[in-house]
Design a protein around this nucleic acid. Structure first.
Length: 113
DNA sequence: ACTTTGACTATAA
DNA sequence: GTTATAGCCAAAG
């Protein structure tokens, strides 16, 4: 067997895919859920590749620790991310998720139950 | 092999 | 409140 070079990326995709609608999470929390081998930057980098590997990945539910839509420019349009979030009941104001802590979904609390 | 960059985060000033 | 710097790890040039 010879393949498998995106182990950490695969884990990132899986966790992002597990984010329930109407909820959001941060890059750091995903990285923490995977382990020390991955950092918040790796999650963001993986997301950049995700749209080519897993277009259906709900990357719009992943924001930075401030609840800010930092990755909006990587979507089809800058407004696309906000529209997707609002469609799920998440209020976005000034590129930031309102009641972020209330809508925050923590992988460690759901996966490492 | 080396340098730069990146959808981040934390701390310091 | 913002801005700067360091830490983090991997891919791309």
């Amino acid at each position: 067997m010879a393949s498998k070079k995106t182990n950490y990326i695969d884990d990132i995709y899986e966790i992002v895919a597990l984010i329930p609608p109407g909820r959001v999470t941060s890059y750091g929390l995903i990285a923490d859920a995977i382990g020390t081998r991955t950092t918040a930057r790796m999650v963001g980098w993986a997301m950049n590749k995700a749209h080519a590997a897993v277009p259906s990945l709900p990357a719009h539910r992943v924001v930075n620790r401030n609840g800010l839509l930092t990755g909006r420019h990587h979507f089809a349009t800058s407004q696309r991310m906000q529209e997707l979030l609002e469609a799920e009941g998440i209020e976005v104001e000034n590129n930031q998720v309102k009641d972020f802590q209330d809508k925050l979904w923590v992988p460690l609390n759901e996966i490492g139950i």
